[in-house]
Design a binder for these strands. Sequence first.
DNA 1: CGGGTGAGTGAGCGAACAATCACCGAGGAG
DNA 2: CTCCTCGGTGATTGTTCGCTCACTCACCCG
Lengths: 186, 186
Amino acid sequence: MPEPTITLSTADERRRTVVDAAIAVFARTGYAATPVAAVAEQAGISTAYVFKLYSGKEALFVAALERCFVRVVDALRIGADASRSSDPAAVLDAMGEAYARLITDRSLLMLQVHAMSAADVPAIAQALRAGLERVTAFAGERSGAPSAAVQRFLAYGQLCHLIVATGLTAEDGEWAGLIADGIRHY
Amino acid sequence: MPEPTITLSTADERRRTVVDAAIAVFARTGYAATPVAAVAEQAGISTAYVFKLYSGKEALFVAALERCFVRVVDALRIGADASRSSDPAAVLDAMGEAYARLITDRSLLMLQVHAMSAADVPAIAQALRAGLERVTAFAGERSGAPSAAVQRFLAYGQLCHLIVATGLTAEDGEWAGLIADGIRHY
DNA sequence: CGGGTGAGTGAGCGAACAATCACCGAGGAG
DNA sequence: CTCCTCGGTGATTGTTCGCTCACTCACCCG
């Protein structure tokens, strides 16, 4: 056994590159419609090597989804830290603002949408629940808000996902304005 | 031009059968991962004939989605009619109850989830927006509720979709109970 | 230098799938 | 009977995709 070193192996560095590529590509075309070759191309390596780094397409998607939720929770934490008031409602609002800024790049949002659609794959459903748990637990504990407020936070987050995924704009009419009113998505 | 008859041609009857099959099958495995042959099998006809009834997979999915939204609005109407009070909040609540009962069969719910994921196909995104408009407009006009209440109605509806799609249950822990509290999905 | 280890790839197999085409049979009109 | 329309199908085709395997190259330790 070699002595433990701090420096990462090159394979692990590659894995990070691949996961970043996977987030971007899966977010564009979804789980089923995205060939692994597209992820490999985005990462700048061969398809064969992607299969050496991850046991299959499913594991690759799960890894991307897990990283996605890590990034979401990180954003919520930064948002909460930036809140001027420690009032639960204010902290929750600051988290919402941070999330809205995070998803300026739509990848993290769309990946969650695609994951819901691919949840008939058990491993994906499990990763989705695990990510949801982390978001829910963090939002609740960090803000100190009551359950109903956290639930409301998540519900309007899902509404935001709907707005972005369907490409709703003000030109869609009065009803579109009704749906999107006050929902931040820059 | 033949004289207009009330009786439907057999081809149109077949189209309805196919659309019903499409709703069920697409709801299970989504747009990209569902072969047209699976829809044909469910409908009890050959794959070739499905392509004669619909110009392609895309048109078939759009037809299924449109019918899905028709069924949703119908359910909302029936729910509103059954409301004892004409108070806007009460009517909206009755609509929610009717929707919760409608999606006892998960097909209509999951089809909407899959449609969001497939919204990078322009025709699907358009059908989704059109359906959303009908739901929003009907809920608002029929209940007479203020915009914010209608928006809230949709947001918690999306939360319900998240709960069902991820397969959340009480065994998932306290956080799961927090998310699902009061959200009707039988 | 020689050999072993791990990063990285090209080529290809087998299966699945969207879409098409040639074709069949029944029934109604002339 | 003949023809023509229309519901309906089997077989096929070209392509794509997940995944594997044999292989190369660079580096490092002795």
